[in-house]
């Protein structure tokens, strides 16, 4: 019998049918993400390493979100204004020890994944505010491209630190470029302005022997072939406003899908009943599981920013996964 790690990698990296449907929320040791204070500011809110202010908010379940006066008004002045975090000031080993204490370190049994939040597009929006960032991409594409390149250079330095200290199997780059209804920008704008930087980051991750995943929420099915083209092993966190089944049929041999659960619907709410949770997990297993190249992922938006409230939200989901993960 395979270990959960071997089973996960069979689906997510080899794009084959695993022995059972792996679960991102139990088969993975997830490091990084919210713990990167240089990316998201300190817990409870404050300045990140770029000078962007983050505020803890009730509507985001206590998670800090970027806000306040934009750091950058005029994209053409980015070189004089934008500063990057000093990654050498960060206590990498201390952070690893702390995160391993919370999430565990059984690397033989579970996959180690490092979440690198705030990708190139998201960082632009954090620096400029969403609307100015979206305008800048059309009005000053050359300056945007240069800033994306600089952000990618910084991310590549981050990958070097992560590879050295965390030694993950997978790095997931989080760059949310879609809404519930479609991409924020046209596929053409994505391809000309963002995709080359996503590719360079993927290449840098692979150069360290690490597997690149890309995350975007929302409806992004139009650019799945682009994710394939730039060597992305898996797309997370796939939400069901996309034709996930169609994607698995067409691209499943080239890219894995991690997700499926209706995190934006009733099953994703704190007040979701166990019956609703159970039904949506069963739907995922029955609909997507048979194709292989699929990893279940589901969570709920809970009150409170700490890992304990997050865990409380996923426990009934994980129970349902255990019940249905062997559906053929």
């Amino acid at each position: 019998m395979l270990t959960p790690k071997e089973n996960f990698l069979l689906a997510a990296v080899e794009h084959k049918k695993p022995e059972w449907v792996p679960n991102e929320m139990s088969d993975v040791i997830m490091y990084g993400g919210a713990f990167e204070s240089f990316e998201n500011g300190p817990a409870g809110g404050g300045l990140d390493g770029f000078g962007v202010t983050w505020h803890a908010t009730e509507s985001a379940g206590g998670q800090p979100v970027p806000g306040g006066k934009p750091v950058l008004d005029d994209i053409e002045k980015w070189e004089n204004i934008v500063k990057f975090p000093n990654l050498d000031e960060y206590d990498w080993e201390g952070s690893l020890a702390m995160q391993a204490g919370i999430f565990g370190a059984d690397r033989d049994q579970r996959v180690v994944e490092y979440g690198m939040w705030n990708g190139q597009f998201l960082r632009l929006t954090h620096l400029m505010g969403f609307e100015n960032a979206l305008c800048a991409m059309l009005e000053e594409p050359e300056a945007c491209d240069a800033l994306f390149a600089a952000i990618t250079d910084y991310k590549i330095k981050l990958v070097e630190r992560v590879a050295k200290h965390f030694k993950p199997d997978i790095i997931t780059s989080y760059d949310d470029i879609a809404t519930e209804r479609g991409l924020f920008m046209s596929p053409g704008t994505y391809r000309s302005l963002i995709k080359p930087h996503h590719k360079r980051l993927n290449d840098a991750i692979k150069a360290h022997g690490i597997i690149p995943f890309i995350h975007t929420c929302g409806k992004c099915e139009e650019i799945i072939p682009d994710y394939v083209e730039i060597g992305t092993a898996a797309w997370t966190s796939a939400q069901p406003m996309n034709d996930i089944e169609g994607i698995l049929k067409k691209y499943g041999s080239q890219i894995a899908v991690v997700g499926g659960y209706d995190t934006n619907g009733r099953p994703g709410l704190e007040e979701a009943t166990n019956e609703e949770i159970d039904a949506d997990v069963k739907r995922c297993m029955e609909t997507y599981g048979p194709y292989g190249s699929y990893v279940f992922m589901g969570f709920r938006l809970m009150s409170g920013a700490g890992p304990e409230s997050f865990m409380e939200g996923i426990l009934p989901i994980n129970d349902a996964v255990e019940k249905y993960k062997h559906i053929k």
Partner: peptide, 9 residues
């Protein structure tokens, strides 16, 4: 036919 950035500008 167009996306948010085109509408914004």
């Amino acid at each position: 036919e167009i996306f948010v950035p085109e509408m914004l500008i």
